[in-house]
Amino acid sequence: MDSQGLKPRLATIWLGGCSGCHMSFLDMDERLIDLALRVDLCSSPLVDVKEFPNVDVTLVEGAVANEAHVHELEIVRARSRIVVAFGDCAVTGNVTAMRNAFGVEDVLTRAYRSTSAVVVGVPDGADGMVPRLLPRVRPLHELVKVDYFLQGCPPSADEIYTFLNELLEGRTPTIRRFG
């Protein structure tokens, strides 16, 4: 815990999703100002903290789609007291997992080899400049223990607020559970 540390520490990250769950987080609108007083947003794509810190709660948007996501998720799990699968991509794989019906090579060929007039290279991860895609997109709970499942594509701002508020008040949020 750092010097600001009396407030509960919240983090958000995105893996393979569309940012929509994060946008729904911002859709809390002016309630964000109230939230800023009550929690410390330690790490998030919205702030410039680049090293994932130890936190109380992390909202994880998106499915696990490439090797970097696996690594990220492991770090998040190790450093968060509570991990929340934030939105349907994290909960089930959702749209991100629709590519599972096809092989990785097919998907890359469709996106790069057969639609570009000029193919200088294909971003398959071979040169280490971009992460390799996993053969199958996976929901979070296939890789790590998930404490809460916040469903919806995206979950509504009201749901997010109610959920966080329950946690902040020290109650166990009662939400729809997956599985």
Binding site: A11, S43, K50, H69, P131
Partner: peptide
């Protein structure tokens, strides 16, 4: 394309 999480800088 889309997003990856936080990595240490």
């Amino acid at each position: 394309t889309h997003a990856l999480g936080q990595m240490p800088l």
